[in-house]
């Protein structure tokens, strides 16, 4: 099988050619600042070359200079209105700048001219992202669900977004059913684990308990599996208390208390909640708040924290 890793397929990539830098003369070893300087110089002599603006926007973005990047992406679209990558990048930047209406208008405009299913899907997913940030969950769900029907290999993010909108809409059964479809399609264990969480959240813990026990045995670090296992056990069960205590000990051994691994801190917050230690759970949640993490997982955690500690 190993030989497959270096034998080339002959399939030719169908897209992104518009994004190729037309940057002959720019050296590969230059920093973003040097590259921006040289691109600016070249733009002066060829002000209608969209690729140069796109390249410069990417460099600005990497330096966190959002407003400069926005200006360059807009210029690209003035020169080449069908440029998909610039459309998506600009839409995301506008959303980050709290301009969702402008972002949606841009995406809608581009959707009208979208030809391929893949382009449509990416634009719909981008729209779904905007709706999600503005808490329009039904629209977000509709967008990502339509996008998922248009591409053969959606990334995990798409299924996770569909799942979190289902959670926000209270569609707990549909959530795990659609994650199961995602897992079958992509074979991603992350989706499989998310499906297990969704089953737990839907009160179907008994069904997934054997899988949880199996994965727990196979793992080096067991805290996450212990937290899942605890949710399949009765509130007063001694085993439940034991596995949660074991999880907290393990996580405390792994956490860097100066700047913790966010994934572990989130787990610990949930473990404290399930233990009924609401004070510590609140402290961890506040800590997460200070880290300003925007994620589906945080929304899911908040949903969990609002739920009763016991599953059955």
């Amino acid at each position: 099988m190993s030989i497959r890793f270096f034998i080339r397929r002959v399939v030719v990539g169908e897209f992104l050619l518009s994004a190729i830098f037309l940057t002959d003369g720019l050296h590969a070893h230059e920093s973003p600042h040097d590259t921006i300087h040289k691109l600016s110089h070249r733009i002066e002599s060829t002000p209608t070359n969209a690729a140069l603006y796109y390249a410069r926007a990417i460099e600005y973005k990497s330096l966190g200079k959002a407003s400069h990047a926005v200006a360059d992406f807009r210029t690209v679209l003035r020169i080449d209105p069908s440029n998909l990558n610039s459309t998506l990048a600009l839409a995301r930047l506008l959303a980050v700048q709290s301009k969702p209406d402008q972002s949606l208008k841009l995406l809608d405009g581009r959707l009208k001219g979208a030809v391929s299913d893949e382009s449509k899907a990416r634009l719909l997913k981008a729209k779904s992202d905007i709706y999600f940030t503005t808490k329009q969950y039904q629209r977000s769900y509709d967008g990502v669900t339509e996008a998922l029907t248009l591409v053969a290999k959606p990334s995990d993010d798409w299924y996770l977004q569909q799942a979190i909108t289902n959670l926000q809409l209270g569609e707990l059964i549909r959530r795990h059913q659609q994650l199961a479809i995602g897992f079958k399609k992509s074979a991603s264990e992350l989706l499989h684990y998310s499906w297990i969480d969704a089953k737990l959240d839907a009160g179907e813990g008994k069904e997934v308990k054997p899988t949880i026990l199996k994965y727990r045995t196979e793992s080096r670090f067991v805290s996450t599996w212990n937290i899942r296992l605890a949710q399949t056990l009765p509130l007063e069960a001694t085993e439940r208390k034991q596995v949660l205590a074991e999880a907290v000990v393990e996580m405390n051994q792994r956490l860097n208390m100066t700047r913790p691994d966010v994934t572990l801190l989130m787990d610990r917050c949930l473990a404290y909640h399930l233990q009924g230690d609401l004070k510590r759970a609140k402290q961890d949640r506040q800590w997460l708040e200070t880290m300003k993490i925007q994620s589906f997982q945080i929304l899911w955690l908040d949903w969990k924290l609002q739920s009763p500690a016991a599953a059955e």
Binding site: F5, R9, E14, F15, A19, I20, A187, E189, L190
Partner: peptide, 30 residues
């Protein structure tokens, strides 16, 4: 010319990398 999101482009044509933990590890699906 290649995209991690869509797994398309010459880079993804040049390699066949594991998505289902074919060589160990945890299946990433990508």
């Amino acid at each position: 010319t290649s995209s991690g999101e869509t797994q398309k482009g010459p880079y993804y044509d040049a390699y066949v990398l594991p998505t289902k933990a074919e060589a160990g590890g945890l299946a990433s699906g990508t």
